[in-house]
Design a protein around this nucleic acid. Structure first.
Lengths: 251, 251
DNA sequence: CGTCTTTTTGACCATTTTCAATCAGTGTGG
DNA sequence: CCACACTGATTGAAAATGGTCAAAAAGACG
């Protein structure tokens, strides 16, 4: 479950980064590309279930996801777990820990996950030497904050069915925005245990709730994955509308 | 309820800012002080209940709280409200909206609230011209994110009693960190409705839960305010320990 | 084929919500 | 000073939502 494959250190120049060709991300000019290429120290891939960062630890690195999914979570002493948010390509991992000290949440891979690696010790350069990138990092932090606001509203005030519909609509929207056209990418790589721990519900009740969505033909559950069949239906039930697709930065 | 007093525009030079003398905040050098003084365009005070920022609006300003309390919240279409976090002296209001576009939450004063005013249109200068302050802004965003992580864990996974204990311990910690010695400041200026909307519980159940904390002599409820009598007791029940007091920046 | 993980179901139990009042404190106008 | 309106706290009872326990079914995989 927790095994971490030996990091395969590789190199991809940032100018050839597959994410940069995605129109969903803002374009970098040459100077920015050069700075980031320089900041980047490597790249590696882990298996599903691997822990990238551990609650309480002080990692020397931070990462940007190149491909795959992960999630952030916190646990109480007796093991109750809350998933805080999902981490998809373009997302930054470990910023909180880099700025504030130790990590206060765990990050675990959901799929094979490839990230590129930055040194925490050199992060401050961004603010000292590259205002536009520093702005991007702040932007990324503000975006995460906004998403957490929405999750908190959902967990605090929506019913089980509304919450489930919101979560699946939200996740579907995120893959949609990445414009990954392969049909395989439209399947959300989460088990019902993950959904339960995200919604703040028990596994049993989550199952019964998802069953209702399946019976209404809004989603399909197959192969430990969820396929969204009717995004408008989910939005109607949850009362949540996605924001218009953003053009966002990443490091 | 929603009346906003006419802003009283005043001026306090940032070098004489009462918050700067508080050792809980990091010191600024002269250049930083000069920049911030220049960035600041005014100061004003609103009454309890006033709305500083409205969900859906695009404010031309952002604020730093000089004194008083406020809270951030979101509502569902049918009126269910979730309080996301509380805003205390030194906190920045409106960063999300400034970076990402329109505000997606409301900010409302809980007490008489004095803020100093910045122009959103000039915010980008911070990243272009003053790396150390840009770093501070990112730090502030990362801190808010961490707090939201904790709230989400609490609302998602703690029982009603644990949640209530956590919230009161958290709020008590925040005033504690501000080192406001006047006993009046140790009373948390929230009604049980606010507590309910923060915990994601109904008002009735919140009342019954708080009553248990009162009967255990952990808190006292008086005058629409809450006094924390036994912070260790609250921490024990909630299983939450505050982080060591931080030395934090503000604008 | 056996083992493991994940999903599914039923029955029963606990927590929390909703509804409906009541009570206490505060400020207003008569 | 008192009646009145208003906000916030409190309580009891009934109803609903969601949790726990126990077990089985369905795939996935070596």
């Amino acid at each position: 479950m927790n095994k971490q494959v030996e990091p395969k250190i590789g190199r991809i120049s940032c100018s050839g980064c597959p994410l940069r060709s995605n129109s969903h991300f803002r374009e970098f000019d040459d100077k920015e590309l050069e700075f980031v290429s320089n900041f980047k120290t490597g790249e590696f891939t882990v298996n599903p279930g691997a822990t990238l960062m551990m609650e309480g630890a002080r990692s020397a690195h931070l990462y940007t996801v190149l491909s795959g999914w992960a999630f952030r979570s916190k646990v109480l002493e007796d093991g109750r777990r809350q998933i805080l948010n999902y981490v998809l390509p373009g997302d930054l991992i470990g910023l909180q820990g880099s700025l504030l000290g130790e990590m206060q949440h765990t990050v675990e891979a959901l799929t094979p996950l490839t990230v590129c690696v930055f040194e925490r010790s050199r992060l401050a350069d961004v603010w000292e030497r590259f205002g536009s990138l520093a702005y991007d990092v702040t932007w990324i932090a503000a975006r995460e904050e906004r998403i957490l606001d929405e999750h908190l509203l959902s967990v605090g005030r929506r019913t089980a069915l509304e919450r489930a519909a919101y979560l699946l609509a939200y996740l579907h929207q995120r893959v949609e925005n990445l414009q990954e056209l392969a049909p395989e990418h439209r399947l959300l790589p989460v088990t019902q245990t993950h959904v339960a721990d995200t919604l703040g519900l028990s596994l049993v009740h989550t199952n019964k709730t998802l069953r209702k969505l399946v019976q209404s033909n809004l989603i399909r559950w197959m192969d430990s994955r969820c396929e969204v069949l009717d995004i408008e239906g989910l939005q109607r039930i949850s009362g949540w509308k996605s924001s218009p697709p953003e053009c966002r930065p990443f490091l």
